[in-house]
């Protein structure tokens, strides 16, 4: 049976203000979905709430991973059950080496029932795997000895997120603007890498404003978010259209959602 991630009528508020107002979306493992929409429409919120960020208060709906409601789980349990998010602005953890962090994370995600204090993946085995993945992603080994995201450039952070995706091998991954802050070559590399890592092995939800990241990850479905709802779903041609012509048509067709989006954008500005 294929794994399925089903977001069902999700309502989310941040600091008391409603952001998501009934978003629904179903992803089967192996599919690639693009999530597009103007700023402030709620794309990142969808990802954050799915992952369990404490500032994102779910006020209604469900996020089903097969028959488990992820909303009942803590963030670490969600990760262990196979959900991942590459963040737009990953946090720096000074003093913690990327390799040490990844060894813990990889161990936990691969052995979801691991209790604290139990053995980590053997160092040699882990290092070998990390090395091969880093070579593949054209990341210098020195990188693993640096502190997590501490003093990283925007591009380095994004590559570190992709490296984590490669190591953790989740069932489903939300990639939140993993192309932002990258130059054209870096975006191409990222796009290729994601296709290779994710491809048909994962269910991908790619949040992006551009279509470069989609070059090697042609979406099976494209969703447009506006005013906290998904207002339209189409194929790859929808992604191309939005990239070329922007959201004018969408705003005209969904005036209510457009008005709400404007309000939300103004409130957050």
């Amino acid at each position: 049976m294929t794994d399925t991630l089903r977001i069902e009528d999700l309502h989310v508020a941040v600091e008391g203000k409603p952001i998501l107002k009934g978003a629904s979306l179903t992803i089967n493992r192996g599919e690639t979905h693009a999530l597009m929409g103007p700023n402030g429409s709620g794309k990142s919120t969808l990802g954050m709430a799915t992952m369990g960020h404490p500032h994102y208060e779910v006020t209604g709906g469900h996020v089903w991973l097969n028959d488990v409601d992820l909303l009942e789980l803590d963030a670490d349990e969600r990760a262990r059950s196979g959900v991942f998010m590459a963040f737009q602005r990953p946090m720096a953890i000074p003093g913690v080496k990327l390799a040490d962090f990844l060894r813990h994370a990889t161990t936990n995600v691969r052995n979801p029932d691991r209790q604290e204090g139990e053995e980590l993946i053997p160092m040699r085995e882990f290092r070998k795997e990390l090395k091969s993945k880093m070579e593949h992603l054209q990341i210098d080994m020195e990188f693993a000895r640096r502190y997590v995201n501490d003093g990283f450039s925007g591009g380095e952070m994004k590559r570190a997120e992709i490296l984590q995706l490669a190591m953790l091998q989740p069932k489903f991954a939300v990639l939140d603007e993993t192309d932002s802050g990258l130059d054209a070559d870096a975006v191409r590399l990222a796009s290729e890498s994601i296709a290779e890592i994710g491809g048909d092995k994962m269910g991908l939800l790619i949040i992006t404003h551009h279509d470069k990241l989609l070059e090697h990850n042609p979406p099976d479905f494209t969703h447009v978010m506006l005013g906290g709802r998904i207002v339209e779903t189409g194929g790859i041609e929808l992604a191309h259209e939005l990239h070329e012509r922007g959201y004018e048509r969408i705003r005209e067709e969904y005036p209510e959602a457009a008005a709400e989006n404007r309000e939300m954008a103004e409130a957050s500005a």
């Binding site: 992952m51 369990g52 960020h53 404490p54 803590d74 963030a75 670490d76 969600r78 990760a79 262990r80 991942f84 998010m85 963040f87 990953p90 946090m91 953890i93 913690v96 040490d100 962090f101 813990h104 994370a105 936990n108 995600v109 604290e116 984590q164 953790l168």
Partner: peptide, 17 residues
């Protein structure tokens, strides 16, 4: 949250920080 989103328990994450 960042560390927990990668599968570390709250306690492991705090200790790591």
């Amino acid at each position: 949250f960042y560390l927990m989103s990668r599968g570390l328990s709250e306690q492991e994450a705090s200790a790591m920080i």
